[in-house]
């Protein structure tokens, strides 16, 4: 009950700062892992998507995925599949769903859920190792727009 109340407060706060048409993590509609609707209504910026994918403090996608188009950014991991050709293999809606919460499509995936902010076991305050002062202060790993930006880049990855 207290958690629900806190969520309502958090939601209200978010709506206050974010654009009115940004979809909150709790309201994202997954359909077999796909998300049809843009999370923000603002078209993604592929150039910023690259930044999100390569920056350790943001998505750091290349920590696990090899991407030939991002070769200039060193050290690509091997934990996830290569993303070469991802724009051929997946629709934008599928890519949005996978980036937002891959576990909707692949329940056992190791991939973190980038647009989620609750339902964790011992969630911490970022990398401090400490519990957050208030669990409802936890923010998503990426913002809604950053997800759209990553998707905008991924759709360009054609074989």
């Amino acid at each position: 009950m207290r958690t629900a109340l806190a969520s309502v407060v958090a939601l209200t706060l978010c709506v206050g700062v974010a654009q009115a048409d940004t979809i909150t993590p709790e309201d994202v509609m997954f359909d077999y892992g796909e998300v049809a609707q843009s999370l923000t209504g603002t078209p993604g910026d592929a150039a910023n998507g690259i930044k999100v994918m390569t920056n350790r403090g943001l998505g750091n996608c290349i920590a696990c995925h090899q991407v030939t188009a991002l070769e200039e950014y060193p050290y690509h991991g091997e934990v996830g599949p290569s993303l070469d050709g991802a724009g051929d293999r997946w629709t934008p809606e599928q890519l949005r769903g996978i980036v937002a919460n891959a576990k909707e499509m692949f329940p056992d995936s190791i991939m973190p859920s980038f647009y989620k902010r609750s339902g964790y076991i011992r969630v911490g305050d970022a990398f401090t190792g400490k519990a957050p002062a208030n669990e409802s202060d936890i923010t998503t790993l990426l913002t809604a727009q950053e997800i759209e930006d990553v998707v905008a880049f991924l759709v360009t990855l054609k074989d």
Partner: peptide, 18 residues
């Protein structure tokens, strides 16, 4: 944690990977 990682995710399922 927020990354939802178990020991096994990295050290059983993905050892030897970068």
């Amino acid at each position: 944690g927020q990354l939802e990682l178990s020991c096994a995710n990295c050290h059983e399922d993905n050892y030897d990977n970068l």
